[in-house]
Amino acid sequence: MNHSRAILTLAWREILRFLRQRNRVIGAVGQPVLFWLLFGAGLESTFRLGESGQSFRDYYFPGSFMLILLFTAIFTSISIIEDRKEGFLQSVLVSPVPRWGIVLGKVLGGTTLALLQGLLFLSFLFFTEMRPGLFEIGQLIFLAGIAAFGMTSLGFVLAWRLDSTQGFHAIMNLLLMPMWLLSGAFFPIPSLENGSFLLHWIMRCNPMSYAVSGVRQQMDGSFLTADLAADYWFPSLSLCWAVTILFSLLMFSWAWKTSSRRVQGDLR
């Protein structure tokens, strides 16, 4: 049995529902844009990255981009809780679509939305000093898509186990915001020699650090100068790709496994 139509339908449904709730667009894009503008302006005079002299506004841009992906991916996952509450999920669970297909449909929908909003924000790139070529932009979008896929899958895992959107927001504040803050999005990962041992390893073990760094390197490959490499730790671009792909695959597998669990909400 070919499940591609069911998967695409589930993905399209996410997009359709999103477009019919326009306040979600404002929530997902508005806040990171506001943060970027305010932090960028406020910290412009105090932050300068090594001899490359990258301004905070430019440094923070990839971080804001990833924050949009994260927000959208996670907010999309809330729809699982809503679907369960509204009873829609129950009817999907007893359809002939296998669980992996249900997960893939939901995650693809979330990924597409995250990426579309990320692309909207990417147009602000012209207000920075970063000038990536078309090839780099293509790679950046691809990498961002993989990262968004992983983050939506992670959101799926969290949402599947919860029965309230309030609980989901609590988890988000407790887990996902620190995950983003400690990804090098807001400040670079200190080297072992120049920074805290604990902070270095927490940030280094954070899979989002690799997505952020990868996006940053695709946006501006020239920012990484020799003096920066001594003070801060930046993973290589190939490592960023490898870790991001691995993270996404693991998260999807986890989401698939989680979806085979029954939760009380399915038995209403």
């Binding site: 069911a6 339908t9 449904r13 359709l16 529902r17 019919r20 509204e86 829609f88 002939p96 209403r268």
Partner: peptide, 27 residues
């Protein structure tokens, strides 16, 4: 064909969209 006690329609979609989406689940 399974009709649950609690509603299982997507209220943000139209009647036609709900039916078309259901059709896609059955290939």
């Amino acid at each position: 064909g399974i009709l649950f006690q609690s509603p299982s329609l997507d209220k943000k979609l139209t009647v036609r969209e709900n039916l078309l989406f259901q059709a896609s689940f059955y290939s």
